[in-house]
């Protein structure tokens, strides 16, 4: 779309945005460029003043944060909260402990209730002990052995 560009409006653009037409508002850029190409001498003084100012502003260096400031900014951010272990997450560890405890209690009860009948061999005695620890009735086993 071709826009009408007047001398007065072009001077306003130069005074606000500088000598580089690419900085002008997009809707007026093409028309401004066309007028500048058509009659550059009419805007020479404004362009010269704008170029001088652009050069001064272009000489202003960037400002970069120091490493200390960067570290302080990063350090000021909230840290991730330590994740609480859920009951399910905690369960496997405790279940292992529980299983061992159950086994120990079972062995203790079993040993406490083992019949004192004599056994023929050490092997049978051990078997009887284990069965008893696991809660089986060892009377039948002993009778069968006799």
């Amino acid at each position: 779309m071709t826009q009408t560009m007047t001398d007065a409006r072009l001077i306003e653009l130069i005074e606000a945005w500088g000598a580089d037409a690419t900085a002008y508002p997009e809707s007026e850029r093409d028309a401004a460029k066309a007028l500048l190409m058509k009659a550059p001498e009419r805007f020479a003084a404004e362009l010269k003043a704008a170029r001088d100012m652009d050069a001064l502003l272009g000489g202003v260096p960037d400002v970069m944060p120091s490493p200390a400031l960067t570290a302080a900014l990063i350090g000021s951010a909230p840290r991730a909260r330590a994740q609480r272990r859920s009951w399910f997450a905690a369960m496997p560890r405790w279940s292992a402990v529980g299983a061992l405890a159950s086994l120990a209690i079972g062995l203790a009860i079993g040993l406490g209730t083992t019949q004192t009948a004599p056994t023929n061999t050490t092997e049978e005695a051990v078997d009887t002990l284990i069965y008893a620890a696991l809660g089986f009735d060892t009377t039948y086993t002993q009778e069968a052995a006799q």
């Binding site: 960037d62 400002v63 944060p65 900014l73 909230p78 991730a80």
Partner: peptide
């Protein structure tokens, strides 16, 4: 990610935007 406290995301936001903010404030 930064809101969740992820340091890499926090650093990325700081590195991207702190120069502009500091320059604006300095000027």
């Amino acid at each position: 990610r930064a809101a969740a406290g992820e340091r890499q995301a926090v650093s990325a936001l700081v590195n991207r935007y702190s120069p502009g903010v500091l320059a604006l404030a300095t000027r």
